[in-house]
């Protein structure tokens, strides 16, 4: 039932204990987002007479966001709140890799990372869908080979029938090198 902003008696006297980390860090990130927005729109002209320039509204809303973010962070600092839940790594990682794999291979891309040029081939709808399905299914903890392969084949077939034959969308079907 501790109220007010007193540092916890057990902690060392100078350091303020963060009472609600979930709010505190959430607010900090929002302030950071607002900062990025202000920085990214800093080159845009602002008010000209009565007329809003392109930069006015972004800076205005970024200012509001920073203020609200600060309010949330301060709440987190002084009001008792829940801890930040642990972030899972495995599930998000596999899902993310699957999505990026699909994006990279459906049409093929080349991009530079630290001076290295990476070229991804065009695998087409069939292969990209199948492999993306298989990558993401590893994100689940209950993985079984047989049913996964069957589901991946069925899903690929369904997607091809629906998107290519039924909806007539322009897709590259097969790998192209």
């Amino acid at each position: 039932m501790a109220e007010g902003a007193k540092p916890s008696p057990s902690g060392d006297g100078l350091r303020l204990r963060i009472k609600g980390p979930r709010d505190f860090y959430g607010g900090l990130v929002l302030i950071g987002l607002a900062g990025i927005a202000v920085w990214a729109s800093s080159d845009l002209p602002g008010l000209q007479g009565f007329s809003f320039g392109p930069g006015t509204a972004p800076r205005m809303f970024a200012g509001c966001l920073a203020a609200v973010g600060a309010l949330i962070a301060l709440t987190g600092l002084f009001v008792e709140g829940p801890k930040v839940e642990a972030f899972a790594i495995r599930g998000p990682a596999y899902v993310l890799v699957a999505i990026l794999f699909f994006a990279g291979t459906i049409r093929g891309v080349s991009f530079d990372v630290f001076g290295l040029t990476i070229v991804l081939p065009t695998l087409g709808l069939v292969a990209s869908t199948f492999i993306a399905f298989m990558i993401s299914i590893f994100g689940s903890s209950e993985f079984r080979w047989r049913e996964s392969l069957l589901a991946a084949v069925a899903m690929t077939l369904f997607c091809v029938l629906l998107f290519v034959y039924l909806l007539q969308l322009p897709f590259q079907l097969w790998p192209q090198f």
């Binding site: 899902v95 699957a98 999505i99 699909f102 869908t129 993306a132 399905f133 298989m134 993401s136 299914i137 994100g139 689940s140 049913e147 996964s148 589901a151 991946a152 899903m155 997607c159």
Partner: peptide, 8 residues
């Protein structure tokens, strides 16, 4: 099996 389908 549903979630990879949704992702795809």
């Amino acid at each position: 099996l549903l979630f990879p389908s949704i992702i795809v």
